[in-house]
Design a binder for these strands. Structure first.
Lengths: 156, 156
DNA sequence: CTTCAATTTGTATATTTATACTCTGATTTT
DNA sequence: AAAATCAGAGTATAAATATACAAATTGAAG
């Protein structure tokens, strides 16, 4: 059927470009694109597409396409929310390494800078990786606390 | 703590060797091995391990370890890229600075990333310079060892 | 040994996701 | 054209999973 495959395509596109943490939020993204279905259908679509929900090992979960479906396509970001672009965050001493969706490091780093978090001395962005240098005395915990209090909501 | 890491190890082992379709069934496998925990703990373990539940596309779901836990694929091509591009490598604490031929930083860094070396937390590339952040506890020596085992005949 | 802070876990529950059942409309068969 | 078959989707609900909170445990500092 025509409608279904259109929808499947759009779902893949959305998953590639956004950090999506639940079927409900994916659902509302789809609505914005004028695809109106229920959560049940979405669940079936995701099963069909072999999409998996994986952990960033830190603050939550997000959907991901199977590896042979997620090519390194660096596309223009419509990321407004810092958290939405972040795929993983780990620390080594005073340096944090953030992994983002491909091509999104730049915009996420910019957004991070704008937050003016006291813990952050500076950032450097590559394509899908950001280094965050912490100020002396600041810890990973300080940052995550401050971070979560500044970032009001997740997804839409 | 001792118990936890034992358990995590066993969980990885079980996931590698069985098709596991729910936390409950994983739980009972663990019980047989004398690990007694609740579903909640298991959920947290799986999050920590970044285990994901994936669909086989038709009959159901099963747990799977993240790809960098499973056998590495064809990385031979990347190895050549890495070898060819590196001009110098020096460390300051947990940060390595790699000098490359002009304009090559990007491709070398990409190749480095693909190697998925356990010592490397992340990289960011400029034009002819790459920063490499080491994981906590890892040293320059660990990296060069691991590096040379994957890439014979490179001086650092 | 005590105290304080950090980690780990269990309990209870909320949230999220899968699915049994049913309906609809499209397509094929007779 | 009616009957039979089938894929897709909605509804309601079951099943699975994540998490807030409190209790327990460990480790470090005095």
């Amino acid at each position: 059927m025509k409608d279904r495959s259109e929808r499947l395509k759009k779902i893949k596109e959305l998953i590639r470009s956004h950090r999506i943490e639940s079927q409900e939020s994916l659902l509302s993204l789809l609505e914005k694109e004028n695809f109106n279905v229920t959560q049940a259908t979405l669940s079936r679509d995701l099963k069909y597409l072999r999409v998996s929900k994986i952990s960033d090992g830190w603050s939550g979960y997000y959907y991901s396409l199977p590896t042979d479906e997620s090519p390194p396509k660096a596309e223009q970001g419509y990321i407004q929310d810092v958290r939405r672009g972040i795929v993983a965050l780990e620390f080594s001493y005073n340096i944090g390494v953030i992994k983002t969706l491909p091509g999104h490091a730049d915009s996420v780093a910019l957004a991070l800078d704008k937050l003016n978090l006291p813990e952050i001395l500076g950032t450097v962005a590559g394509d899908d990786t950001i280094f965050v240098i912490l100020r002396e005395g600041m810890t990973k915990e300080d940052l995550t606390t401050s971070f979560q209090s500044k970032i009001p909501e997740v997804d839409t």
